[in-house]
Design a protein around this nucleic acid. Sequence first.
DNA 1: CCTCATTTTAACCGCTCGGTACATTTGGAT
DNA 2: ATCCAAATGTACCGAGCGGTTAAAATGAGG
Lengths: 221, 221
Amino acid sequence: MEKTEKEPKKQSRKWKQNPEAVRADILRAARTEFARHGLSGARIQVISEKTQTSKRMIFYYFGDKEGLYRAVLEEAYQSVRRAEAALDLDGMPPVDALRKLVEFTFDHHRANEDFIRLVMIENIHDGHHMVQSDRLSATNTPVIAQITRICAAGKAAGVFRADVSPLEIHWQISAMSFFNVSNQTTFSINFGDALFSAPAQAHLRETVVRSILAAVTVRDP
Amino acid sequence: MEKTEKEPKKQSRKWKQNPEAVRADILRAARTEFARHGLSGARIQVISEKTQTSKRMIFYYFGDKEGLYRAVLEEAYQSVRRAEAALDLDGMPPVDALRKLVEFTFDHHRANEDFIRLVMIENIHDGHHMVQSDRLSATNTPVIAQITRICAAGKAAGVFRADVSPLEIHWQISAMSFFNVSNQTTFSINFGDALFSAPAQAHLRETVVRSILAAVTVRDP
DNA sequence: CCTCATTTTAACCGCTCGGTACATTTGGAT
DNA sequence: ATCCAAATGTACCGAGCGGTTAAAATGAGG
């Protein structure tokens, strides 16, 4: 019996247990892969290679591919909700508050392309993997509640139109902030990339702000 | 010899050649499948089953899966370009023309969900499968040219602001019209489906029109 | 009727990829 | 020290799926 190995005794400790770190590591790698290639396009093999652990552990912690995808999606949404909740607009003048909300959303979406892509992918799948935490009546989500408060203040101050809908405002803000990231590629291919340089994006952001404010505020002489 | 069949003579002809119809049939089935499940999610098997022809013919006519996908994408874009070209706005007052353009785009996107989904999918793939027909300098695409004309008329008439950008206007119209279809599912899950009933969509469409017009027109006393 | 390129059929194939069986290691509890 | 459940490593598998092979049927031209 030949002993080619150098240290046979201390070799016994090859790895340490760290379930939570492993879980987080897998989620990190999986988020990128799913965002880049979609649910069916992503490869478990590739995800595991971008991890400190093995393919085996992915199934150990998440059951199957869909379970992993669901976990990624859930975590991504939680992260965005946390960021939204950190934004404090109460006490500001309504117009300033709305402006700041638009600017925040516009910037935040740009900075979180992976999240945008995951939402795109989930829409392709008709939202089959989303766990709708609770029955939501629109108004009880934090963002909508926030906008509702801003609108109330704006109407009370006489600067907002009486018929503005908080839900529609959020829809508009989301639409432009989302599309700006989600469709950058095809828009650039079809119409050139003039709108996506840094200065052009700053200008576009201001256009979005102006457009929303113009639709919401009363026209003064 | 028993003759269970009715017409034994003409039976010799089991199938007829019709290459163009077969091609079109495949494209039709493939468009739906790719729109529903994406490039990697779609199954050639399933596509062929929704066709009058066989799986083999798909490879005969389109080479491979990607070739079929590219053909579907190309045809979808051509179809939309044709519809856009059919819209005639010249001669109308600028405000009316812009309103009509917004309404048309909003409605047209809603009526062509498969196209929207194909564009979403193509953005996920970073546009790798799009054939950019020619070098486009933004202004020479028909839609942008159309808006440029409207803007020129509007500025000349003194009803449009001097600093409006046709490309940005198109971006805004696209963003809201596109998002309305592309993100309906996740938006509904997160904020309820109040905006997506027929009357709510009519109201939303008007909101989009008003928002765009408000951002573009000069504020009169 | 014969020729022959085009179009269609039927059976088949190799390999990728999600998922698993099974042995082994770790580390806390007793 | 011992035990045992939780965690990890290794090797493997079966099926689905994109793509192919080989041959037959079609139909226009001569």
